[in-house]
Amino acid sequence: MLFLTFQLGADRYALEAARVLEVLAMVELGKIVGAPVGTAGEFDYHGASVPVLDLCLLALGRPSNLRLSTRILLLKHESQPGSMWPLGLIVEHATELVPKQLGEFTMVGDALVAQDPRGRLRLLQLDKLLTDELRDLLSVYHLAHSQNADAG
C-alpha cells in the first residue's frame, strides 16, 4: 500500500495514495465569496468546478506557502452518501510516496502514527478536519453539477 507524504507545520503526514485521483500543480484559484474558513477557492478541472481546501489554513490558520512542491491533491470525497465528487486539497512538500501498511499506524493520543526512517509519520484524518460548514459547501458543488448534468 502506498502513502503520499507531505508536510504540515513541523510534522510529516501521510495519506493513502488510493484516495488521491491526481496530484496537480498549483493553479490560480477563483474566490468563493462567503466560503467558510479553510477554503482556498475553486478551479476548472476539465470543465467541472472543483472546490479547493488549504490544509495549512485548516490546521494551522495560515495559508500554504507558494512553492513548486506545494501541490493540489485531487481527492475522492464522498460529498453525498454513496456518490463521489473530487475535492482539491493544498498541501506543502508533496514530493514523496512511501510504501507502508495501514496496520503500521498505531493510535498515539488522538493521532495515528507510524515509525519511518525519517521520523514519525502521521496519518491524515481529513474527515476530522472538515467542519459542517465545509461539508455543506462541498455538497453544494456536487448538487450544482448534477443539476447542470440533468439540464443538459
Binding site: 500543480a25 498549483m26 478541472y45 476539465h46 470543465g47 512553492r67 513548486l68 512538500h93
Partner: peptide, 25 residues
C-alpha cells in the same frame, strides 16, 4: 533534488497550469 522543489514557481507557472487544467477536457 527535493530542495530544488522548494523554490518559488516561475512567472506564469500557475496561469499555465490553470489553462491546461481547464482545456484538457
Amino acid at each position: 533534488a527535493m530542495r530544488l522543489l522548494d523554490s518559488r514557481p516561475p512567472a506564469g507557472y500557475r496561469r499555465e497550469w490553470t489553462e491546461r487544467m481547464a482545456e484538457l477536457a
